[in-house]
Simulated scan of single mutants.
Amino acid sequence: MSKKVLMAFVVAFSSLLLSSCGGQANANKENKDKDKDKEKIVINVETTETMLGDAIATFKSTAVLEADRQATVTTKSSGIILEIKVEEGDLVKEGDVMMVLESDTQQLSLNSAKANYDKSLNNLKRAELMLKKGLTNTEQVDNLRFETKSLKASYDQAAMNLSFTQVKAPFDGMVAKRHVKIGNLIQNATAVFDVVDFDSLQAKISVPEHHWLLMKKGLPVSFDFDAVQNMKIDGHVERIAPTIDSSSGTFQVTVAVDNKDHILRPGLFAKAEIIYDQRKDVVVVDKDAIIREDDMAFVYELDGEDGVKRTTVTLGYEMLDTVELTAGILASQTVVTTGKNNLTPDSTVKVINYN
């Protein structure tokens, strides 16, 4: 074999070998890129935006409604019931006659007392005229004057006893219960009606002592009743007990309830929220965006189109669905809500928000 042929053979073999190595390197690079793509996991997430809103601080508790003005009406006289003028559920005004007792004896006593008083009064007037003419003395006139006053008191007492045969409403309200029937013979101080003023409904709430300085008269209160669906009832703090119960570590707050439509009734169970502070135009976010670890809280902010970054935030007041952020993030930032627990700072995400 000549030298030229040998050289040509060596050159061809080298070219083939280099070509084979280059192809293998390219293949290895493609495989690595494919493996890298396989390791890159995309996590579907939902997001929301931080925004400016109102932060409200509330104390939540439960209470049972009661009427501030609720009375059991009793009789001040004995006798047979002749007439019942109201029934359960009727509205009454202060002074309305609710029931009438027999009054013959009281009427006779009044007539007798009036006759005695009128007679003494006439005698006093004649004696005063005679005194001016010098026909009687001052002592006799004074005696008649004292006698007339005594008989006037007896007359007033008889008139009062007669009025007691009519049982009257003590205040504006509704008849909640009737205890007696027509024809019953009742004695003095017998319970005959229960009357409730539904405009005076209130709730007494026991508040822990560490809220002592937060409670103020006039604070707004919101009520939620199971018996009254989809309706918020308003109220306000009417008064605060001046002392703390040492056995329970609580103090009592009395809340007046708005019941002008007479929808509510004493005995209803309520969930109450006393609003003791409000802050406007602060950064708030959906509670679902918050991740808590021990005493720390953070959110995942959207970073670019498919990246996220973990941001530590400081929490303020917590509302029903949102929470105030006092530091760490501004308004109008996109944060992850659903899928946040699967994220790390180097995660790749795809935003899918469902209506």
Rank of each mutant, 00 (worst) to 15 (best):
T165H: 04
I186C: 01
M160G: 06
I240Y: 10
S248F: 01
N44M: 10
N353V: 12
V255T: 07
L131W: 06
F198Y: 15
V92R: 03
A153N: 08
G79F: 05
R292N: 10
T58Y: 02
N28C: 01
F171A: 06
K132D: 10
A191L: 01
D197R: 04
K204M: 08
L124T: 12
Y354V: 12
F171W: 05
G339T: 13
T344K: 14
F13V: 12
N230A: 15
S20D: 10
E293G: 08
D199M: 06
E318L: 03
I43W: 04
Q140M: 12
K340R: 15
V237Q: 13
K125T: 13
E46V: 09
S347I: 07
N341I: 12
S163N: 14
E128T: 07
Q202F: 02
S222W: 03
A159T: 09
L213F: 07
V141M: 09
L82W: 05
P220H: 02
L320G: 03
D295Q: 12
R265E: 15
K232N: 13
M130P: 01
V349K: 05
D104H: 10
T58F: 02
K216A: 13
A289F: 06
M99C: 04
S109M: 11
E293W: 03
R265H: 15
N259W: 03
S120Y: 05
D281N: 15
V284T: 12
N230D: 15
S14A: 14
V282Y: 06
W212K: 13
D199K: 12
G328N: 07
N230L: 14
Q106R: 08
F146R: 11
Q187F: 01
D306A: 09
K32I: 08
N355L: 13
T334P: 03
L325R: 00
A331Y: 02
I274Q: 07
V351N: 09
A203N: 01
L214M: 12
V42I: 10
V196Y: 00
L144I: 03
S332I: 09
L213D: 15
A272E: 02
K181W: 00
S77K: 06
Y155I: 04
E318W: 00
F223C: 00
N188M: 04
I352R: 08
S150E: 11
K125G: 04
M319D: 11
G22W: 08
R265D: 14
V282M: 05
E94V: 12
E94S: 10
V42W: 00
T105A: 13
T338D: 13
I329N: 00
S120L: 11
V100Y: 04
E94H: 04
K280F: 09
K152A: 13
F269E: 11
I244D: 05
G95E: 04
D35K: 12
D281V: 02
T138G: 08
A331H: 06
T322C: 07
L213I: 03
S2T: 14
K4C: 02
K287F: 01
D104F: 11
V100L: 11
I56Y: 04
V257A: 04
K309S: 13
R145C: 07
V313D: 01
K132V: 09
